[in-house]
Simulated scan of single mutants.
Amino acid sequence: MMYALLITPARAEQVRKAVKEYGEVVFEQAEVMDSPGIRNALQSAARVAADVLILDIDAGPGPDLVAAVQGYRIARPYTRIFLLAPGRQTGDATVARLVGLGVYDIIDGPVEADWGALVAQALTRVPATYAQAARWHVMSGLTGEEQVKEKVVIEQRPVGVVTIAVAGAAPGLGCTHTALAICAFLARQGHNVALVEDSQNPVMQDYLKIIKADDGRVSNAWRIKGFDVFPFAKTGVDKFIERDGNFIFDELLPELRAGRYEYIVRDLGVAGKKRTREAFRSNLAVLVASAARWRWGDLLRIEPLSSFSLALVAPAEREVKEIRKIPELKAYVMPHHPDPFSMPDETLAELLRPVLPQAKKKSSFWPWKRG
């Protein structure tokens, strides 16, 4: 297991010693930070493929810590987060808001406790659920009562922002076309959506200028068909450059957080080893491919293929049947449709079913009197 640590100096040595018994520390920052500091620290941590993040609630100001964790959740939806909450009691607003972001592993105790021992005990337990963290999801009201925000957890939908990665098994199969279709579909369903272009052959900036797209919700974004687009900005020599090995997605975390998007769709271009790893950072990885037998070689180089949802472009029925014989492979038929913004909803709803809410309910507040 690989661990990232964002902790205060007071607990750094204890936590560091405990974690090294269970795995490798791949990122560490031990200090009390201001607003820009905690934001930059979590952005840096998001660029490291850690399995677990251990976060000290005293590492930064509460509201800024919450906002920074939301950005981290966008980039690393599957990383397990442990929150150290020394001296915090039920009713703490910062803890409550972090629980709302899906941080359920709360480690609490007196400030002077042995935090190494507490962390070691927590690391041996199975991941906590909302039911175990619900007592923290409480905020003091103005009337002297307390209110518990009831968060509806939708089956098969991850907590927080949902990221969808779209890659192509080979050039020219319609990766960008499919990404646009997904965004348009989600926008039609009333969701707040962003498309991030991380393709080797970026085309969106020129397209947006040609159609004279409107400004988006936040800086660096353009708006079309009810959703925001973050195009990759080409250099003066029209060459695609991933600065310092990062994708534009990593550079845009502040804007993506500010936009409060429900869904973020990444157009990753042609899948290679690096882009395949990026795809698996998402909640749903879609691979656009041809079902033609002479193109099956494109699929053989993708590993692990079974981790993708396979979007087959205008396939023949016989070829679909053959591909669906492959064990554990999830294959969906994408009919030929030249306009990505009006692709049939039924087709996209089936592909996106794992990350779509099954029912929409509003959060409600239930009053509880202090005991």
Results as ranks from 00 to 15, higher is better:
residue 6 L to F: 02
residue 7 I to H: 02
residue 8 T to D: 05
residue 13 E to A: 13
residue 18 A to W: 04
residue 23 G to T: 07
residue 24 E to D: 15
residue 26 V to A: 05
residue 32 V to H: 03
residue 32 V to Q: 09
residue 35 S to L: 13
residue 45 A to M: 10
residue 50 A to D: 00
residue 51 D to Y: 11
residue 55 L to W: 01
residue 61 P to I: 05
residue 62 G to L: 04
residue 64 D to T: 04
residue 69 V to I: 07
residue 78 Y to E: 10
residue 80 R to Y: 02
residue 91 G to F: 06
residue 96 A to H: 03
residue 96 A to R: 04
residue 98 L to G: 06
residue 99 V to D: 06
residue 103 V to Y: 04
residue 105 D to L: 04
residue 111 V to N: 13
residue 113 A to F: 13
residue 116 G to F: 08
residue 117 A to V: 08
residue 126 V to H: 15
residue 131 A to I: 10
residue 134 A to K: 14
residue 136 W to F: 15
residue 137 H to P: 04
residue 144 G to A: 04
residue 145 E to C: 08
residue 151 K to I: 15
residue 155 E to T: 12
residue 157 R to Y: 00
residue 172 G to V: 00
residue 177 H to I: 00
residue 180 L to S: 01
residue 196 V to D: 03
residue 198 D to A: 15
residue 213 A to I: 11
residue 222 W to S: 10
residue 231 P to K: 00
residue 237 V to Y: 12
residue 240 F to E: 12
residue 241 I to W: 07
residue 245 G to E: 06
residue 247 F to W: 11
residue 248 I to T: 11
residue 249 F to L: 11
residue 255 E to M: 08
residue 256 L to M: 05
residue 258 A to R: 09
residue 262 E to K: 07
residue 263 Y to V: 03
residue 264 I to Y: 07
residue 264 I to M: 02
residue 266 R to V: 09
residue 272 G to R: 06
residue 272 G to C: 11
residue 274 K to C: 09
residue 275 R to H: 12
residue 288 V to I: 08
residue 288 V to G: 00
residue 295 R to I: 02
residue 296 W to T: 08
residue 303 E to A: 11
residue 305 L to K: 11
residue 309 S to D: 05
residue 312 L to H: 00
residue 317 E to F: 12
residue 317 E to R: 14
residue 317 E to C: 05
residue 321 K to V: 14
residue 323 I to D: 01
residue 327 P to G: 01
residue 332 Y to D: 03
residue 333 V to M: 05
residue 333 V to H: 03
residue 334 M to D: 01
residue 343 M to D: 03
residue 347 T to C: 15
residue 351 L to W: 08
residue 354 P to L: 12
residue 356 L to A: 04
residue 356 L to D: 02
residue 357 P to E: 06
residue 361 K to G: 13
residue 361 K to P: 12
